[in-house]
Amino acid sequence: MKTRIRQLILLASLTGAAVAAWAQAPTTEGEVRKIDPAQQKITLKHGEIKNLDMPPMTMAFRMKDAALLSQFAVGDRVRFTVEKVDGAYTVTQIQKAN
């Protein structure tokens, strides 16, 4: 019983740390250049992506939630977060910039 409780406490602690790290992932500003719903990708002209040590460029990214693609149009200014998920650069958060 005590071992199970320790395991649950450890799991909760690790989950909390992962959420905190994700919440602190830096956002990047960019501009939508292309939307490809069939491939679940968005092409962005972006500034430096610090957490990936990536210089400014234009490239296509996989979307974590492809349903979000319908909220954007070519030319929209956006703020987004990219992480490497299963070996692919993936937009994990995105919103229109003010």
Rank of each mutant, 00 (worst) to 15 (best):
M1L: 15
T3A: 09
R4Y: 15
R4D: 15
R4P: 10
R4A: 14
I5A: 12
R6F: 13
Q7G: 07
L8V: 13
I9T: 13
L10I: 06
A12W: 11
A12C: 11
S13T: 15
S13H: 14
S13F: 15
L14V: 14
G16K: 07
G16S: 12
G16A: 09
A17T: 15
A17D: 15
A17H: 12
A18P: 02
A18Y: 01
V19T: 07
V19W: 05
A20Y: 10
W22V: 13
W22C: 07
Q24W: 07
A25D: 06
A25Q: 06
A25K: 02
T27M: 02
T28G: 00
T28W: 00
E29K: 09
E29I: 13
E29Y: 09
E29M: 11
I35V: 13
P37T: 11
P37E: 11
A38V: 14
A38C: 06
A38P: 11
A38W: 10
Q39G: 14
Q39W: 14
Q40I: 07
K41R: 13
K41V: 02
T43R: 08
L44T: 04
K45M: 05
K45I: 01
K45R: 06
K45H: 05
H46Y: 03
H46K: 02
E48T: 08
E48L: 04
E48G: 01
I49W: 01
I49G: 00
K50P: 03
K50A: 04
L52E: 13
L52I: 04
L52Y: 07
D53H: 01
M54D: 08
M54P: 02
P55L: 06
P55D: 11
P56V: 02
M57V: 05
T58S: 10
M59K: 00
A60T: 04
F61G: 02
R62K: 10
M63T: 09
M63Q: 08
M63R: 08
M63I: 05
M63L: 07
D65P: 13
D65S: 12
D65K: 15
L68M: 08
S70P: 07
Q71G: 04
Q71N: 12
F72Q: 05
F72T: 05
V74Q: 08
V74H: 03
G75N: 12
G75M: 10
D76R: 02
R77L: 10
R77T: 07
R77I: 06
R77M: 09
V78Q: 02
R79G: 10
R79C: 10
F80Q: 04
T81N: 03
V82M: 00
V82E: 00
E83D: 13
K84I: 01
D86V: 03
A88H: 06
A88S: 08
T90C: 00
V91H: 07
T92I: 00
I94Y: 07
Q95G: 11
Q95F: 07
K96D: 08
N98T: 15
